[in-house]
């Protein structure tokens, strides 16, 4: 399962409420006439929120004339991918939303395709990973966690809101590996949702929580936990108090991206038009409103840059999963 961020619920529903206005905005000339968003999961999920939030900003800003949405869940996202490839001939206006799991799931063969079978358009937003401890934890910085891990790996119990071998686990293993530890020794405790992992952390049964930064910030604001580190290259302006892993001497960066893919074989002009529309979106106040509401971090990563980023991520995650025994 992909992680459901509660922020995205809000975004979805905001989009739902605004759907009535969507059709009307097409009066003046738009850069792209229409976009059909294909969402590989059900309503209310993270993908759903991203597509609807992006669509809302694009249409309200007048960049895109008309946006429509189609939810198609099944097979961990594989059904939508297969559909897009099968019907590529008439999917000229379609953008499929996806995120880091497309890389992980094609590695683990949940579905036979990979991002190479589609036309990557651009990565648009992202979220860093973060490590969280309760207020009363003995850990004040990430180095202390590493020291404990080196002395006795099983003394550090890392909670996460998804199964073993999925993102929360991989990120934790990656961080300990970069710090010189054995990623296989990481004691990962899986919960079936972020909220439950948080409850486990507060009950004292785990020592640290691995989660997304935006969710971690909400939790920290609730006042029960502290964020030890996040996985960005540098600190972000929305939360300048949170240190990066890098500045604590652990050379590990990770971003859980979300972005858009078009059907295979689509014309280069059309891809360029999509990219131009997305790029233009960032400067609009309509986007800023959606972005702020959802706590998204802008990471614009178009075309070839996006492809090479995906290849790099596939390499890192693939190596890690092999080392952990998942592949």
């Amino acid at each position: 399962m992909f992680t459901l961020s509660r922020r995205s619920f809000v975004a979805t529903m905001a989009a739902v409420g605004l759907s009535a206005t969507v059709g009307m905005a097409s009066a003046q000339a738009a850069d792209v006439e229409k976009i059909h968003f294909l969402i590989p999961g059900g309503a209310g999920g993270g993908w759903d929120g991203t597509a609807r939030g992006t669509g809302e900003a694009l249409t309200k800003a007048g960049i895109v004339g008309q946006a429509s949405y189609e939810n198609m869940s099944g097979g961990g996202g594989g059904k939508a991918i297969a559909h897009l490839i099968e019907t590529a001939g008439r999917q000229d206006d379609t953008l499929m939303v996806n995120s880091t799991p497309i890389v992980i799931r094609s590695l683990t063969k949940v579905f036979p395709q990979s991002f190479r079978d589609l036309t990557p358009v651009a990565g648009t937003i992202g979220d860093y990973a973060a490590f969280v401890v309760p207020n009363n934890s003995k850990y004040q910085n990430f180095s202390e966690v590493i020291a404990d891990f080196m002395a006795d790996p099983s003394s550090v119990k890392v909670a996460g809101g998804s199964a073993r071998g999925s993102m929360d686990h991989l990120v934790a293993a990656y961080a300990f590996k970069a710090a010189g530890g054995d990623p296989k020794k990481v004691k990962y405790i899986p919960y079936d949702a972020g909220g439950k992992a948080m409850a486990g952390l507060l009950s004292g049964e785990t020592s640290m929580l691995s989660t997304g930064l935006s969710e971690a910030l909400d939790l920290a604001r609730a006042g029960e936990v502290r964020i030890l580190a996040m996985t960005g290259e540098e600190r972000i302006k929305d939360a300048p108090e949170v240190p990066t892993l890098k500045e604590q001497g652990v050379d590990a960066t990770f971003v859980n991206w979300r972005g858009f893919f078009a059907a295979p074989g689509i014309s280069a002009d059309k891809v360029a038009a999509f990219q131009a529309a997305l790029e233009k979106m960032y400067a609009t106040p309509e986007w800023e409103e959606v972005r702020k509401r959802n706590g998204w971090v802008e990471i614009y990563n178009p075309g070839d840059k996006f492809v090479s980023f995906l290849e790099g991520q596939e390499q890192v995650i693939g190596d890690l999963m092999k080392e952990l025994g998942f592949l």
Binding site: V16, A43, E70, N71, T87
Partner: peptide
């Protein structure tokens, strides 16, 4: 389609 804005299947064959 109108209230929830979640497209239902339009029909491959019809297309």
């Amino acid at each position: 389609n109108e209230v929830f804005d979640s497209g239902l299947a339009k029909g491959e064959l019809l297309y």
